[in-house]
Design a protein around this nucleic acid. Structure first.
Lengths: 194, 194
DNA sequence: TGTAGTTCTTAATCTAGTTCAATGGACAGG
DNA sequence: CCTGTCCATTGAACTAGATTAAGAACTACA
């Protein structure tokens, strides 16, 4: 149950067997069916979830009720609304399972406990957030500087597993374009390949 | 010299006088004239700079040579390319002073030393990066979901000091629009107010 | 003081991407 | 087996914002 998450943590720092035990004991195992809302706008996010198995999407709603996908998360990723989680403020995002999921969840209280008992995890979480920040900065740059087609090609190149697991209009909402336009891009691409 | 940065650090954790001394001793004071390049594409970023005084801009170049401003940083902010700084990889951004600056800089080696000697700073930097991540996520959402005019109004509302200190076409490149279009938005707004 | 560089504005034309509407396929529930 | 719902596709009309070009205002500094 904990092999994957422990291997994942090992990439950032060296933990002893005892430290892993403390860590694993604080994680809550959750099995969640697909199409479950883990967080809704207005909720205070009380988890950071590591995905052992499954697929999850986080998104915002704009003023016209359109969805903007912030993240697709699959095995070996974390999902949360860090702002809401850390400041205990109401979230303005939604988090939803797209498949049956097996999650390892950390509550704010247990995260504090973990950081007290094994301060080395401060480093682990700092590096995690840093990597996340790099990725979002890069995506922001691409959203501004690249055409929709280039963003789509980059997406399927970097996340080849995702298109097979999530509906196409969610990908459009991740790329910041309408589903119709994504469809046109795809048909144009498939024509130009023959 | 160190009052501001120490007050800034105090918001995240309680440090003793001795801990502040260690911290301050590791900071390198730099006075830099305006229009100085602190980092260029291809360089490895060797600083995290706290701005005591001045104004700095970081930006990317797209394939056509157009600038995309990632950040305007003024007093009490940090600038760096965290990806390059932490992974010691060549940067793909530029960092440039827009005014004469007084900076407090941390090199990778000195940051490591600081974290070893005062591990509490792990928490400080983690919270810093987290806040930064929240801000970039929000900006990404706005870039996708909002019109250029709404983004501009949000910008001048949240950063009223910036437009007075930086040329307008840099703001356009931050908002992800052409300078001409920003000019149109502004003239439209000023007309609609009379 | 002149001259060159830089910044901002305005207007005409163009285009990437949206919106709306219609169609057909896939599939889940009764 | 039918039927409703959800999704992807296609095409026509439209629009936010880009591009190009030109002129005006404002530095800066020799």
């Amino acid at each position: 149950m904990f092999e994957k998450i422990n291997a994942h943590a090992s990439q950032c720092a060296n933990f002893s067997a005892t430290e892993f035990e403390i860590f694993n004991a604080l994680l809550e195992i959750k099995k969640v069916p697909k199409k479950t809302m883990l967080l809704q706008e207005g909720d205070i996010c009380n988890f950071e979830a590591y995905i052992n198995k499954g697929c999850i999407r986080s998104y915002y709603l704009d003023e016209n009720g359109f969805e903007i996908t912030l993240q697709f998360a699959i095995e070996d990723w974390w999902v949360s609304d860090i702002t809401s989680f850390h400041d205990h403020t109401p979230s303005n995002m939604f988090i939803e399972t797209l498949e049956d999921c097996e999650l390892l969840c950390l509550s704010p209280a247990k995260k504090d406990l973990l950081l007290q008992q094994v301060p080395k995890f401060e480093r682990f979480f700092r590096l995690l957030v840093q990597r996340h920040l790099s990725a979002v900065q890069k995506r922001l740059f691409h959203t501004i500087a690249w055409s929709a087609q280039d963003r789509y090609l980059d997406f399927i190149c970097h996340y080849p597993a995702i298109p097979q697991r999530v509906p196409q209009h969610y990908i459009a909402s991740y790329l910041g374009i309408s589903p119709e336009f994504l469809s046109k891009i795809r048909s144009k691409l498939s024509k130009s390949q023959h």
